[in-house]
Amino acid sequence: MSNTQGNLNTTAEVGIVEDGGSFPPFDSTTYPSQLLWLVLSFGVFYWVMSKVVLPRIGGILEDRRDRIAGDMAEASRLKQETDEAIASYESALAEARKKATTMAHDARSKVKAETESARAAAEEQLAAKLSESEQSISKITAESLSHVGEIAAETTGELVKALIGGRAPAKAEVAKAVDAALK
C-alpha cells in the first residue's frame, strides 16, 4: 500500500504540473481508462452476482422458508393429533362416567324393587294372619255369646229351684224369662 501511496503522490505532483491544476473529475483524458476498467470490473461483478452469489443467497433463504413452513406444518399436525387424543380421551371418560351412573342407578333401583317386593310380601302375610286372627276372635266371641243365654237360663233355673225349692220350672219358661230380662 505504501508503495502505491508513494507512486500516487509522485504522479499526482507530476499531474498537477501537467494539468495546470484542472479539476480531475472533468479531465476527459481519464475517461477511456475509467470506462474500460469500470466495464471490466462491473461486468465481472455482475456476472459473479447473477451466477453465483444471488442464486446462492436466494437458495439459502428459500431453504429456510421451506424448512420453517415444513416445521410449522409438522407442528400443527402434531397439535391436531394431540387435540384428537384429548377429545377421544374426554369422550371415553364421559362415556365411562355415564355407564357408571347407569350401573349405579340400575343397582339402586333393583335393590329398591327387591326390598319393596319383600316388604309387600311380608305385609300381605301379616295382613292375612291378622284377618285370620280377627275371624277366629269374632267366631269365639259369637260362640261365647250364644252360650251366655244358655248358661244364664241354667243358672237362673238352679237359682229359682234353690229359692223356691221343689221342682224346677220348665226349661223353656226360664229361657224365655232370661231372654226378656237380657233385652
Binding site: T4, L8, P32, S33, Q34, L36, W37, S41, F42, F45
Partner: peptide, 17 residues
C-alpha cells in the same frame, strides 16, 4: 493511441468488486 492505463481509479474499482 487511447489511454486505457490501469490507474488508482481502476485499482479501487477492482478493490470494490
Amino acid at each position: 493511441g487511447v489511454d486505457f492505463s490501469f490507474t488508482n481509479a481502476s485499482l479501487f474499482m477492482v478493490v470494490t468488486v
